[in-house]
Write a protein that binds this DNA or RNA. Structure first.
Lengths: 353, 353
DNA sequence: CTGTTAGCGCATTCAA
DNA sequence: TTGAATGCGCTAACAG
C-alpha cells in the first residue's frame, strides 16, 4: 500500500476518512502519495470491515418499461447524492426471479432495498426485513411485509378516469386490467368499479379484459395470429393487443376503454389500428400512465399521469432516512394528475344532435 | 458461522463452491445446517479473498433513454446468465460525471466495464484499461482507448436514409444532429454528407441544426419560449424542439429533415405540431432510432432502426469472454434496418401530376 | 477425505 | 499526533 508516504495504514485510513486529526504535514505527504500512486481505497475491503457497502438494491419488474425507468432515474439521482450505488434487478413479474435476486442481493450485503414486488408472498423478503434490512415497497404492496410503502393514489386515479367517461355519457366502459397479484392493478380495478357503482352502471364482467403476462406467455403459439414486431419485449403489450381484438370482434363492443397501464396501452392502440377503428370517433380511450408521445399522438391521449420521477425520489429519500436511522413518517400516496386531451368523445352532444 | 454442522469453514466453503470432494455424509450435514440457519455466504468477503466481485459496471448517458434502456436490458439479461451483477451509472453526457462514476466503479473492484463514453478523452479510463480491466465501448468510441467497440453501422444507416430522401426528389434536406463529441453523431453526419455529395447536392451549412445538450442547458432561460412539459428530462428533446422551430421560422425551409436520434425526434415532432405542420405533406421526416409508437403514429414514422437489445447482448457476450480470458474476435458493426413507413413524401410524383 | 492457517485491504481499538 | 495489532468472512494452499 501507499506506505511510500512513510506512515502506517491507520494514518492513511484516517486522512481518507477524516476520522481523527492528522498533522498537516503528514496529511500532505499521504495525499501526495495517494495522488502519485493513483491509489483507490477498496470499497470491498471497507465493506468487509465496516459491514456497510454503500449500495442499495432496486428490484423492479422491467427496466425497459418507461414507468420504471423514470422511477429508477429518480431513485438513482437521489441515492447518488448520498454517495450510494444502485444495483438493478428485473423480475419480469416472476416470483422465482424475484426470489433469486433477493438472494443475490442479500449475499451482497446491500444497505437497503427498494422493491416493486411481484405481489406473491415472499418468505425471504420477510426474513430480510426482520433481520433489520431497511426496505421500502415501491408502487405496489406485498403480503405480510412490514415496510413503508411509496406509491400513488391508484384507486382515486382510476375512479376519476372512469367517472369522466361516465360523465361523457359512456355506459359500456371496458377495462383492460393486468395481473391480480399486483396491488396497483387491483386498486385501479376497484376505482373503476366504484365509479361504475356511483354512476348507476351495473358492473359487467364481459367488459373486463384480464391480461396476464405469465399465462399469456404460455399460450399455444399456433392459436395466435402473427404479432406486430413490438419493440418492447414485455408480454403485457401483445397480451393486450390480442385480447382487445378478441373483444372487439365479439358482440359486446364497448364505447370506451380504460387501460390500466402503459404497456397495455401500446398494445391496445395497435389493436385499434389493426381493426381500423378511429379514436375517439369509434371508441374512447383513457390510459393510466402518460407517455412522451401522448400529447402529439392522434388523438392526443387522455391519461392518468403518475409522478414517476418523484416517486423514485420519494422512495429513495425514505430509504436513506431508514438507512441512516433517522426518524421518518409513513408517506402518503402521491396524487396523480388526470390530463384531459382528445381521446374521449362525449356521447351526450351526439345524442343532442 | 455454520459450524453447527461440526465441520471447518474450509469444508463449508468447499461444499458451497464444489471445489473439492466432500463425503456425501458431511456434505449433507453442511447443507442441512445452511438450510436451517438460512446461511448466506458473503459476496463481499468472497470478493476480498478472490479479488473478483462478479459485478460489471455499465456506464451510459441516461437510463431513461429508451435506446439505452433496451441496450441495458440486453446487457443485463446476458451477464445475469453468467452469474454477474450490473451496476448502472448515468453520465448525462457529462465528462465530469463520467469520471466520477469511473472512480467509484474502480473502487468497487468491478470485473469488467461496458461504457458508452461521452467521447472526451479520459485519463482514468485509459489507466483502467492499462491496469487490465476488461472494457468494451458501447455505441460510441472515445479517443486513445484500447478496447473493442460494439456498435452499429451509423454512417451507412444515415447514408441510406438521406439517399432515400434524395431519391424521393428532396433537395433541401435538413439534418438535426447532436454533440460533436459523440462519435455516433459524427458518423451519422458523415453518412448524410456522403449521400448529399453522391446525389449531387451541395452541402449547405444552413440546413444543419446542431443541438448540444450541454450548451443548451446553460442557455438564458428568458430568451426561450415556454416548453411543453416533456416527460423525459433530457436536454436534447427541448433543444431540438426550439432549434427546429427557429429554422422553420426562418427563410430556409427544408422539405425534409433527417434526425439523428430518438430524443431529438420527439422534440422535432412537438415542434411540427406547434407550427401546425403536417407530415409528410408539408415536410418529410426520417428518424434514426425506432420507437414503440412509431408504426401507429400519424404518420407512421420512417426510421433507421438499431438492434438495441442485440447490441447489449453482443457487448455483454464480448465482455464475458474477456473477463474469462477466452479468445474473442473484434466485433463487426451491427447492421441497421431502414424501415420505410409514411413520413416521407415523394416530390417526384407531385411534379409529374 | 478434512482441518489449520495465512492472507485479501481495510477500520478500529489500544498504546505510546 | 501516530503505530501496531486485531478482525471482518471468505478462499486457497498446505498438511494430515
Amino acid at each position: 500500500m501507499a506506505e511510500r508516504a512513510g506512515v502506517s495504514t491507520a494514518t492513511v485510513s484516517h486522512v481518507i476518512n477524516q476520522t481523527r486529526f492528522v498533522s498537516h504535514e503528514t496529511r500532505l505527504r499521504v495525499l501526495e502519495a495517494i495522488d502519485a500512486l493513483h491509489y483507490q481505497p477498496s470499497a470491498i475491503a471497507r465493506g468487509l470491515a465496516t459491514n456497510s457497502t454503500q449500495t442499495i438494491g432496486l428490484i423492479i419488474s422491467d427496466i425497459a418499461n418507461p414507468f420504471f425507468t423514470a422511477v429508477a432515474r429518480g431513485v438513482q439521482d437521489n441515492v447518488h447524492q448520498h454517495g450510494y450505488h444502485t444495483i438493478f434487478s428485473n423480475t419480469d413479474e416472476d416470483p422465482d426471479r424475484e426470489d433469486e435476486y433477493l438472494r443475490l442481493l442479500s449475499a451482497r450485503q446491500i444497505d437497503g432495498l427498494i422493491i416493486a414486488p411481484t405481489g406473491h408472498r415472499s418468505e425471504r423478503l420477510i426474513r430480510m426485513a426482520e433481520a433489520g434490512l431497511p426496505i421500502v415497497m415501491l408502487d405496489r404492496e406485498t403480503p405480510d411485509l412490514e415496510a413503508p410503502f411509496v406509491g400513488v393514489d391508484n384507486e382515486g386515479g382510476a375512479y376519476q378516469a372512469t367517472r369522466y367517461l361516465i360523465e361523457l355519457g359512456h355506459r359500456h366502459i371496458a377495462i383492460l386490467v393486468g395481473m391480480a397479484a399486483i396491488s396497483t392493478q387491483v386498486m385501479r380495478f376497484d376505482g373503476y368499479k366504484r365509479a361504475l357503482a356511483e354512476g348507476g352502471i351495473l358492473f359487467n364482467e364481459e367488459f373486463v379484459i384480464r391480461a396476464d403476462s405469465r399465462t399469456y406467455s404460455k399460450r399455444p403459439a399456433v392459436l395466435e395470429p402473427p404479432l406486430p414486431k413490438f419493440m418492447t419485449n414485455n408480454q403485457m403489450t401483445p397480451a393486450a393487443y390480442h385480447l382487445l381484438q378478441t373483444m372487439l370482434d365479439s358482440s359486446n363492443f364497448p364505447s370506451a376503454i380504460f387501460i390500466t397501464n402503459n404497456e397495455m396501452t401500446v398494445g391496445a392502440l395497435y389493436a385499434l389500428t389493426e381493426r381500423d377503428l378511429r379514436c375517439p370517433e369509434d371508441i374512447s380511450i383513457i390510459s393510466f400512465d402518460d407517455h412522451d408521445w401522448a400529447p402529439i399522438f392522434s388523438p392526443a391521449l387522455t391519461v392518468v399521469r403518475q409522478p414517476t420521477y418523484e416517486l423514485g425520489q420519494e422512495a429513495a429519500n425514505l430509504l436513506m432516512r431508514m438507512v441512516n436511522q433517522e426518524p421518518y413518517e409513513l408517506p402518503q400516496p402521491l396524487p396523480v394528475e388526470f390530463i384531459i386531451r382528445e381521446s374521449c368523445r362525449s356521447l351526450k352532444t351526439e345524442q343532442a344532435v
